[in-house]
């Protein structure tokens, strides 16, 4: 690197960091200001904490948060199990040929399109319900389980699974190459491990340990999912992003400070999770190769 580019690096990197951190801090400050009724801050006069009182006395936001965490954990667990199973079955074929290209396809589908596809396929009157009826598995199309607008969130989980599993499959394949998993598993076999033992004692712990940061970040993204829960999720309970959006942009203007209080709380929880992850990763990097 020459002197000029080194100087540029010293200049631009802090500026970029300042912009990132600054915009996050500013957004948080404004959200907090709105939550205490200072909608036209800095010219606002009063300070109203009624929205915060309501946030902690009403159950709506917390139910929504718990519901979102539950759906996220279920989705991630199922996606990891599915991706590991597919990776164990497909092996190196994940990397080559038509399968590798096909796997990338769901990654290119926007959530809105995925929601519409889920609606077309999984609704009471959708393709799958009609197919099961035509096959004689259900008496009427309406007998098909309701995956769309389902309070159990099954439609959201299934659609997210379709979108997340290929990504995890590619991640595991990449990690396996990086960690020389095939050689380590062969070493396990040479020490007497059968295939199941090699997977349980070598492959799974290694893959999950190294995939943890990506899984955690992806979990945060799923937790804040908006389009899918809005389009195919139940009205009540709603996922957290939908609940916040409804409060902030609803017709009832009195609900707006509550919406901003929800947003601020969610924002702070996400920041705390991110900081916790950074701390864990830093500590682990100090121990691991």
């Amino acid at each position: 690197m020459n002197t000029s580019s080194a100087t540029d690096g010293r200049l631009w990197l802090p500026l970029f960091a300042l912009l990132c951190a600054g915009s996050v801090a500013l957004a948080l400050l404004l959200t907090l200001a709105h939550s205490v009724g200072m909608l036209d801050w800095p010219s606002a006069a009063g300070l109203d904490v009624a929205a915060w009182r309501a946030l902690f006395t009403q159950r709506g936001f917390w139910q929504s948060l718990i519901y979102s965490v539950a759906l996220t954990v279920i989705t991630l667990c199922l996606a990891v199990a599915l991706a590991v199973t597919l990776f164990a079955l497909l092996g190196e074929r994940v990397r080559h040929g038509w399968l590798a290209r096909l796997l990338l396809l769901p990654l290119a589908v926007p959530p809105v399109v995925a929601a519409l596809m889920a609606f077309t396929l999984l609704a009471d009157s959708g393709f799958v319900s009609r197919l099961t009826h035509a096959l004689g598995w259900t008496a009427t199309p309406a007998d098909f389980p309701s995956f769309i607008f389902d309070p159990g969130g099954r439609g959201i989980v299934i659609t997210h699974l379709v979108m997340v599993t290929p990504l995890l499959l590619l991640l595991f394949d990449n990690l396996a190459t990086h960690l020389r998993l095939a050689a380590l598993m062969q070493q396990g076999a040479a020490l007497g491990a059968n295939r199941a033992q090699a997977w349980r004692r070598i492959a799974l712990p290694l893959l999950l340990r190294h995939a943890r940061p990506v899984l955690a970040v992806y979990g945060l993204a799923l937790l804040g999912a908006y389009e899918l829960p809005l389009l195919i999720g139940a009205a009540q309970p709603g996922m957290v992003a939908v609940t916040i959006q409804r409060a902030v942009a609803g017709y009832d203007l009195a609900q707006r400070p509550l919406g901003y209080a929800m947003a601020s709380t969610y924002f702070l929880l996400m920041l705390a999770s991110w900081a916790f992850l950074q701390l864990r990763t830093t500590r682990r990097d100090g121990r691991m190769p």
């Binding site: 396990g188 059968n194 712990p205 290694l206 340990r209």
Partner: peptide, 20 residues
């Protein structure tokens, strides 16, 4: 028979210790 059934153990050129 499998490696385990033979009671054989194979040591490779490189140590290949399990990093976890």
């Amino acid at each position: 028979s499998t490696t385990q059934a033979r009671g054989a153990v194979y040591l490779y050129q490189e140590p290949l210790l399990f990093p976890h």
